[in-house]
Design a protein around this nucleic acid. Structure first.
Length: 810
RNA sequence: GCCCGGGUGGCGAAAUCGGCAGACGCAACGGACUUAAAAUCCGUUUUCCGGCAACGGGAGUGCGGGUUCAAGUCCCGCCCUGGGCACCA
């Protein structure tokens, strides 16, 4: 048969047309095959696919296609993280309505994804800005409220005095407003909603060890551990001299308490406000503001005495009470005991302000240089002197508990999740503020609280919702009097915390999902996304899963049994692609130029998927050339009258084929190092081209279909087209993955390396399984090794059968 | 400062269990084809030394030690680099 021309445009258009069939990538509900649920993190619909998406989704798609071929019942959905600031910013700048803006961009990105040939079951598609989705955010909010997991408190927000509005963190650039680059952002306190993720802090931490270790990347788990930040220590009350009020401190080093030479309160600490005089309060305010505008780098330690004194409950000694800018109000109790001899920060503080330094811990076997911050032997500490730090901590905790001035305590660094956003384009928080009844939840039957479409985007004043009377004015569900809706919307991380559950039952209008469907598909077998979501998204989803479990909706404790985080795509200059650097490569341009298959192949070939990968356009051509070589090889050999050929050539070609299948099967099941899988395919085509003239028809009939199927998960268009040209029926991606036969992989003879003192001196070809003695004899007799041995004494000979002989000489 | 990665040719990388370092690809150079160019195909390409040559010999995986018959791979101590956290008591 004639060799054909590889025209990627023609092939892609043809198959896109055929792949429109909505049933094609649907999981089979009646299938008895084992399920495989693979999810790639859903994108924000910015309107253009970027290389990071292409990489993420090419990895996921290769895996989904491979698992289909392995006979699994695969569920592979896609959706849109459709709420968020860019749409609203665009509206503020005079662009389209956020909804229209978003819908148009979703359409555009869907088109691009289909062009890439990604195999999604679009019947499961979810769009988080649709009421049918976000009503369940609201439903979950009500459940959180019922269970005491949602509460309101005052918290700081960014405020631009120029706009007269609240800014999201992303709208703050270098401490200034995004629209007024010279206007400093201020901090203002507003009543906001929080979710008590801290209630689950212990379980979130424990399950990292018990459920995720080994299945999620270490660096993600390390970041999460760090973020949760569990500290084991003690809470101890110091008594204020005079009033007798208690000041509670948290410390991990109660064993050093005899060395406490002062107490330091956060400047915001309520007691500090009380103890300070007018001048002191001004100083405290200065410290708070200086910290709010904290630039990068260290803030110099600052502090001031309150004039008050407190009594150390263990030693009975009186210490001064200070305020200090390095003590955080929202960690621990907002107050510390300063032990300058055994803590670097306290040391720095007390040195600066001339406070005494009293050592109470002796190192076990080294000189003591202050501050000495390790455990040691306690001294100058009354009845505890002579104990180890650990013993002292235990005994001191016991006494605190017994005498009622403290206890062993655990503190977490993680804080409750503030979900309120003073924005329009998000899920309305379903509560009503009634002057008589207070905060009243919207009754479930009234969900969803829909976002009104007709609002004004001024970028000034309160959020567009708050300025919209038709939205805001309602009757109180409890007393029927005039009341106001909550105008805040939810953080978009709420949307993405549970979307992969909704995929399993996307159109359910009675519940967020049917629990039986979740039981069938969960946990997610493989979740794939960027490491940038290591903390927030991935910890919020874990939290959501645990809450849903406690609500009785699901049975699993974790959302994803396995997580894979791919590396970034870097520009030609080796830095992350960004518009400001002008090193962005547009996937669509690459598709025009080289075709979707080439793009997919390149992002998988250039580096192993977990590593950062530079986009070097010069090398993309190599992938295109590879596809052309495969294309030509297959098309010109489809019907070629090859006859019986040369059995030795057949054997060599089949050996390479089976090794390639073996290698790729390993890569898919272990490491996903698709770069080496593709390299193996390249080696295969190199061998096939070399042997081509001597191959028999029989061998070709085995080789051609296998080659095409192996290529399928990476380059689906060309695989499907060639499959059809081979005269096969049924889609290539639903064929069984080729099997390898190890007996065909073996060389005819073993190539045994001969070494002298570890240096290669020669090699001999031997039948497999040759006895050690014979290998040793032949190695010693070999002329190549003789040259290096003569005149020396052979000390010993190491023989690794079928592989290597190392002669050790002196 | 603390916690993770990473360091191998001109470049992206490979070597999965301690057994031939540099597979595969890019780029470069040489050749074939062509009036010419592009495309394609063939060849060379870690480095140093010797040789017209086929070839032979030495060095080499960030640096310094160590274990081993054998180390890119394991151990100890450094250096550089990317990322995360960063006054968390």
């Amino acid at each position: 048969m004639e060799e054909k021309v590889y025209d990627h445009n023609q092939i892609e258009l043809k198959w896109q047309e055929r792949w429109k069939d909505a049933q094609l990538y649907r999981a089979d509900p009646s299938s008895a095959a084992p399920k495989y649920y693979v999810v790639e993190m859903l994108p924000y619909p910015s309107g253009r696919l970027h290389m990071g998406h292409v990489r993420n989704y090419s990895i996921g798609d290769a895996l989904a296609r491979y698992m289909w071929m392995r006979g699994y019942n695969v569920q592979h959905p896609m959706g849109w993280d459709a709420f968020g600031l860019p749409a609203e910013n665009a509206a503020i700048k005079g662009g389209a309505h956020p909804r229209d803006w978003t819908i148009a961009r979703i359409a555009e990105m869907t088109r691009q994804m289909n062009r890439m040939g990604f195999a999604y079951d679009w019947s499961l598609e979810i769009t988080t800005c649709e009421p049918e989705y976000y009503r369940w955010n609201q439903w979950f909010f009500l459940k959180m409220l019922e269970r005491g997991l949602a509460y309101r408190k005052r918290a700081l927000v960014n405020w631009c005095p120029e706009c007269g509005t609240v800014l999201a963190n992303e709208q703050v650039v270098n401490g200034c407003c995004w629209r007024h680059e010279t206007t400093q952002v201020e901090q203002r306190a507003l009543e906001q909603w929080f979710w008590k993720i801290t209630d689950y802090a212990d379980e979130l931490l424990r399950d990292i060890d018990e459920k995720l270790e080994g299945a999620w990347p270490d660096r993600v788990l390390a970041m999460q551990r760090n973020w949760i930040g569990k500290s084991v220590g003690s809470e101890i009350d110091f008594t204020l001299e005079g009033s007798g009020e208690k000041i509670r401190v948290f410390t991990t080093r109660v064993d050093t308490i005899y060395g406490a030479t002062c107490m330091i309160l956060a400047p915001e600490h309520p007691l500090a406000q009380k103890l300070l005089d007018e001048a002191g309060r001004v100083r405290a305010k200065e410290m708070i503001d200086a910290r709010a505008n904290k630039g990068p780098g260290d803030v110099v330690k600052d502090g001031a005495p309150t004039g008050a004194f407190a009594i150390n409950p263990y030693s009975g000694l009186k210490v001064p009470v200070w305020i200090g800018n390095f003590v955080l109000m929202d960690y621990g109790t907002g107050a510390i005991m300063a032990v300058p001899a055994h803590d670097e920060r306290d040391f720095e503080f007390c040195t600066t302000f001339g406070l005494p330094i009293v050592p109470v811990i002796r190192p076990v076997d080294t000189e003591r240089n202050l501050p000495f911050c390790d455990d040691g032997i306690v001294e100058n500490s009354g009845e505890y002197s002579g104990l180890t730090s650990a013993e002292a901590r235990r005994k001191m905790n016991e006494r605190a508990e017994r005498e009622g001035f403290g206890k062993a305590a655990i503190t977490f660094r993680i804080k409750d999740w503030g979900i309120s956003r003073q924005r329009y384009w998000g899920t309305p928080i379903p509560v009503i503020h009634c002057p008589k009844c207070g905060v009243v939840p919207v009754p479930e039957k009234d969900l969803p609280v829909e976002l009104p479409y007709d609002v004004k985007f001024t970028g000034k004043g309160r959020s567009p919702l708050a300025e919209n009377p038709e939205f805001m004015n309602v009757k109180c569900p409890q007393c029927g009097e005039n009341a106001q809706r909550e105008s805040d919307t939810m953080d978009t991380f709420v949307d993405s915390s549970w979307y992969f559950y909704r995929y399993c039952d996307p159109h359910n209008d009675k519940a967020p999902f049917d629990s039986a469907k979740i039981a069938k598909w969960f946990e997610i077998d493989q979740y794939i996304g960027g490491v940038t979501h290591a903390i927030l998204h991935l910890i919020y989803s874990r939290f959501f899963t645990k809450v849903m479990r406690d609500l009785g909706l699901i049975a699993n404790d974790e959302p994803a049994a396995n997580l894979f985080t791919q590396g970034m795509v870097l520009g030609n200059d080796g830095t992350a692609m960004s518009k400001s650097k002008g090193n962005v490569v547009d996937p669509e341009e690459m598709m025009d130029k080289y075709g979707a298959d080439t793009c997919r192949l390149f992002v998988l070939f250039a580096a192993p998927p977990e590593k950062d990968m530079p986009w070097i356009e010069a090398s993309v051509g190599g992938q295109r050339r590879f596809l052309e070589r495969v294309w030509k090889f297959v098309t010109r050999n489809v019907g070629r009258d090859a006859g019986t050929g040369d059995p030795a050539a057949d054997r060599r070609a089949l050996r390479k084929l089976h090794r390639t299948i073996h290698k790729m099967t390993d890569d898919f099941s272990n490491r996903w190092h698709f770069n080496t899988s593709i390299a193996a395919l390249m080696e295969l085509i190199n061998t096939l081209t070399e042997e081509e003239a001597s191959l028999s028809r029989r061998a070709l009939d085995q080789i051609l279909p296998s080659l095409v199927l192996l290529l399928g998960p990476f380059a689906p268009y060309i695989a499907e087209e060639l499959w059809e040209q081979l005269g096969r029926t049924g889609p290539a991606f639903k064929q069984p993955w080729p099997a390898f036969d190890e007996s065909l992989e073996k060389e005819d003879a073993a190539d045994v390396v001969l070494q002298v003192n570890g240096k290669v001196r020669g090699r001999i070809s031997m039948p497999f399984g040759a006895p050690k003695e014979e290998l040793e004899r032949l190695a010693l007799a070999d002329p190549k090794t003789q040259a290096s041995i003569t005149g020396k004494q052979v000390v010993k000979v190491i023989v690794v059968p079928d592989k290597l002989v190392n002669i050790v000489v002196k």
